[in-house]
């Protein structure tokens, strides 16, 4: 696991049925591109988050492929329709095989 990785998610606690809500996500990660060299001239191995997904009650909401050009601490913001109460599950996949997860439940009201 890369050091200092911490996922953060902001989802409203409640929404009206069928309402479109805005979701914000941020994960601290150095996103080493693999194209830089250290002070001795040796390439620094690539270490990035390569995939980010969100599911709502098991149904896919977004599925993003990330490439080395994406900046440090990747931030995603997107809209989602909430048909019913349930749980958002956010997953980030690291090059080194680590998987970071975060869940947020939302109520109808």
């Amino acid at each position: 696991m890369a050091s200092g990785v911490k996922p953060r998610v902001k989802v409203p606690k409640t929404a009206a049925a069928g309402e479109t809500i805005t979701i914000k996500t941020l994960i601290s990660h150095k996103m080493e591109s693999g194209q830089r060299k250290d002070s001795d001239g040796n390439p620094i191995p690539r270490s990035i988050i390569n995939r980010f997904t969100t599911e709502f009650n098991g149904e896919n909401v977004v599925d993003v492929a990330l490439e080395p050009a994406i900046s440090t601490n990747p931030y995603f913001q997107f809209d989602a329709v909430v048909p019913e109460a349930g749980e958002f599950k956010f997953t980030w996949y690291d090059d080194d095989g680590s998987v970071y997860e975060e869940t947020k439940s939302i109520k109808i009201g």
Partner: peptide, 12 residues
Amino acid sequence: DFENPAMIFVEA
């Protein structure tokens, strides 16, 4: 604060 990238460092 959620969008302010500096807050990552504040949390650290």
